[in-house]
Nucleic acid binder design. Structure first.
Lengths: 204, 204
DNA sequence: CTGTCATGTGACATACTTGTCATATTAGGA
DNA sequence: TCCTAATATGACAAGTATGTCACATGACAG
């Protein structure tokens, strides 16, 4: 929650500060990110910073919530398609969305990557608060179990965990190599491997 | 490569310094680890530290190589068993070894965890140098493909990537929750999911 | 024009870091 | 015992960081 003084600023100045925060938090983890760098790039004084925000946590939360708004729009757009797709199609689509997002917004993606591997107290707490969009996936698996597409004995939570782990791994791979096509191909193969393990086709 | 003055020290003093390094590097990533903390716990002076080691990288490499020696012994012990096991049995056994190791040596495990998610220049370089024990796994998959236990079309490298990713994920899970049995159970389920995807039983 | 209040500023205190170096201590051979 | 060479020490310089605060500037109402 930035202070009122921040919200009173002109939009382009707010934007500049936001951009400076993105720049800093996309190149350093929370603990290592420096307010000095932020104010330098935003071209504001140290005093001003503390007139806008309480501390580093404050501007981080602000930045995350701003990014979240943008992200939500993209995700909702993606979800509107294919309402009847099975879990595998949906997940592949989701992966594609995530990769596209990562490609389009490399800095935002980088922030997410850093957050995923951050073990500072603040980020740990923050992660614990946001439950991810996991419910929707679980519903899909349950539905596909009822439709007879996925084995009834499968532990949905574990499958989701597997799949999100692999997706994060792919994102990190993309982030490190920049090879979008390759990561997408891999995603398809990984889903195929998981599918032929959890699909009910043979055993039931 | 610590300096000669370090190797000239009595064993218990060397041991104390090693323990202080383990303590510090198991609770902080490389960049955040503090030499001040190490010398405090080792009860040596700042000057002495720089008489023993060139810098932080130096003591880190020393510590890692010492741990590596211990680890190698454990791994070799584990590999001696079941020479004819298939890939899945072998991998499960490997996971068990890793989890046991993590349980027995929590600090070493923590160091490994931190190293896995460290993106400092030094650790990135270090990771790139050590190629992991991935060859052995690949040989097993190839052999099992020839034995007809695994689909011939499967990309061994990708499977190894998947499996190591999931194993790391489980290790991190164990590290965070301390629930050894649960992680081992999950490992079995994960392997089962991957197996019924890559086993040649139905399609291959 | 002036008074008031919001906003901008950078020097400062404080606390941390690493690596150096002059000096003190210790140990072992002659 | 005494001398020398190895080793131990902590003050220090130079750098980083955060958060505060007295003061400067700007804007706007009367």
């Amino acid at each position: 929650m930035p202070k009122e003084t921040f919200y009173n600023l002109k939009d382009d100045k707010k934007q500049k500060i936001f951009a400076a925060a993105v720049q800093e938090f996309s190149s350093s983890r929370f603990n290592e990110a420096s307010i000095n760098q932020i104010i330098k790039h935003a071209e504001i004084s140290r005093g001003s910073f503390y007139q806008y925000f309480n501390d580093k946590e404050d501007i981080y939360l602000y930045m995350i919530s701003e990014i979240g708004k943008e992200k939500l729009a993209v995700i909702n757009e993606a979800r509107r398609l294919e309402p009847d797709a099975d879990f595998f199609q949906a997940f592949l689509h989701m992966t594609e969305t995530a990769l596209t997002w990562a490609k389009a917004m490399p800095q935002y993606n980088e922030i997410g990557m850093r957050m995923a591997v951050d073990d500072s107290e603040f980020i740990m707490k923050l992660r614990a608060l946001s439950p991810e969009g996991t419910n929707q996936l679980k519903e899909m698996i349950t539905r596909d179990q009822q439709r007879g597409l996925i084995k009834a004995t499968i532990d949905a939570d574990l499958v989701i965990e597997m799949i999100l782990t692999m997706m994060l791994h792919l994102l990190i791979g993309y982030y490190r190599t920049g090879k979008y096509e390759e990561m997408f191909t891999r995603a398809k193969v990984i889903i195929d491997i998981i599918k032929n393990g959890i699909a009910a086709s043979e055993e039931g």
